[in-house]
Design a protein around this nucleic acid. Sequence first.
RNA 1: GGGCGUUUAGCUCAGUUGGCUAGAGCAACUCGUUUACACCGAGUAGGCCGGGGGUUCGAGUCCCUCAACGCCCACCA
Length: 712
Amino acid sequence: MHIPDKFLKPYNPRESEGVMYKKWEESGYFNPDNLPGERNEPFTVVMPPPNANGSLHAGHGLVFAIEDTMVRFQRMCGKKALWIPGADHAGFETQVVYEKELQKEGRSRFQMDPKELYDEIMEFTLGNKSFMENQIRELGASCDWSRALFTLDDRVIKTVYDTFKQLEKDALLYRGARSVNWCPKHQTSLANLETQHHDRTDKFYYFQYGPFVIGTARPETKFGDKYVVMHPEDKRYKEYEHGQKIEVEWINGPITATIIKDEAGDPDIGSGVMTITPWHSAVDFDIAKRHDLDYEQIIDWRGKLLPIAGEFAGMPITLAREKIVEKLDAKGLLVKIDDAYEHAVPCCYKCDREIEPQIREQWFIKMGPLAERALQAVDNREVEFVTKRDERVFRHWLENIEDWPIARQIVWGIPIPAKICTTCMHGMVDLDDSIKECAKCGGAVEHDPDTFDTWFSSGQWPLCTTGFPDSEDFTTYYPTSVMETGKDILFFWVARMIMLGLYRTGKVPFEKVYLNGMVRDGKGQKMSKSKGNVVSPLEISEKYGTDALRMALIVGNTPGTDINLDIQKVNAYKKFANKLWNISRFILTAVEEAYIQEQPSLSESDAEILHAFNEIVRDVTDDLNNFRYHLASEKIYQYVWHELADVILEESKALLQEEGDAKRSRQWLLYHLLTQSLKILHPFMPFVTEEIWQSLPVTDVDMLIVAPWPKG
RNA sequence: GGGCGUUUAGCUCAGUUGGCUAGAGCAACUCGUUUACACCGAGUAGGCCGGGGGUUCGAGUCCCUCAACGCCCACCA
């Protein structure tokens, strides 16, 4: 049979992929409304919206490979397959990226008008957004662009505001002075999840504090310490009574200290006595609250000492630490220094600067009831984890959940619709800007200057993308089928979506959770810009083809396990694409069109081959239905290369020399195996399979993307 | 401090409910350019499945224990 000239050259992904994606997009098949045939059962995946502040990284490559594979498979199986793309404004993340841009120009956000800054970041983000959307196309994602959503679209903001209001009504929202993680560089509070702990060895100082010896790693906070805490049962200090006042000589002269007996005092640590700094320690703050103690700010928002420090005022804490120790030593109050004190310090996850705990009025969401309902949903199997180990991690986190501080002191984000009383700091949710005075004290109010933690809005993403509460899509596609994303955002995102989805609708936002591991470099090292080992999926796709990249990411990659993106592996699948190309060339050359239309009666050996192939199809189908992409892809690869090409094609060469029924049977079989192999391979390697499909003389449908999945 | 996990060929990893004579890719070695493909083919070599104990007719797979490594969470006296 005559074959197209293109088969005379090796497969060239560069020539093919862009054209093919365009064809798919123009076919309208990414939108389930346009899919052929009667389709009743929906299959929905909401894409984790990539941050619109840069290029896609290898992790995105993996996420899109897996999601596209599942969506293409379900589409071929006759489902109303919907994959909803999006873009994330990524609040704090993007602001940090943009601040670096500003820095390059010698500018700073702290010298800018908030509105001006917001507009600039918006322009920056929208530019990145369209850039990034094209990258998603290059990776072959068959998502429905007509339903694409941006996390700052009006629809999202409306849903987020309604949820905020609802939380207030249900008494799940509160505002209070509490210890928060403050980043002195970025000038915002952060949730615990947004800090990372670093192990450090520091000096630990023992000072004479009146009759006691106290220990501390942070002398610079000790100015305001006027409470001495010890365990009520500690026999060493039984002569002291709770509330007793004593005079002690301290850093800047004599002060009056008060004895506090509290079980937080651990007799086994140091002398068993400690002084507390409630403003700069969450533990100390809890103690202070229990006993209704005073607290005072020692360190300002930028990490420098306040006037209470006297001669040390204005000093950054590290410098002040040494000077204070020198002074206490000079006064004879330094008892000893232990220089091998090991502890973990929380740092800003973006800049690594040490977090300074500060007391600040903040909005918090009471998470207990939300977590309880989420746990119930897991118990009832309303939501199931494909990666069982993550379910255990998830449960553990929910069982120990903390209230969620949702305000950030940055401009790039959704403004918090609230008024704050300038007199008593009382906060009131105000969606329509109607509150003019404080409901508590009648004082003047002003707009809350803060924005939402970006995860608060992302946590409602499945609602927003499906058009909650009253769109037709919401009825059809919610709850969605699978949430597939990186395991690193289990708490940040997946957990919040489950809780907020349940809270707003009573239903889980998705039925299955599939968490992929992290993509590492070829040697198993974590990719990072500073190491210079970051691999761009787009560059790989350009050089080796998207299909090869996808296979390298999927084959052998067990759910939840990290994968090394080895360029040699990519190359191996580039060769495989070409192998498939040549298999097609051979078969198209060998068969005659007249013999491939209808199935003839098969020779015994051909019937066996067909039987064996159908076995593979059933096996692979079962794998795909159970998220075993790593196995399905490998099985097809093995079959196509080492059975179809190495065995069947080779023995066909002789068979096809002879005329008669055997030849007729074999011709039909070869063509059948080709078309069916293309089908089962299509979810994994969409480009090369479609390219070949469109060159076939006889097919059941024009485009492979909507070809019916073989029965097996 | 708490939680989760990993350990299988030189390297990177599969191995689904216990049936395995333990597989793949890459790397290595030998041979082969007869028209699908050198982005190839035929073949070879390489493993007490981390150590120890147990359950079982049978364990890479289940249980206990030890060891090494990794990840996550966490209020820095």
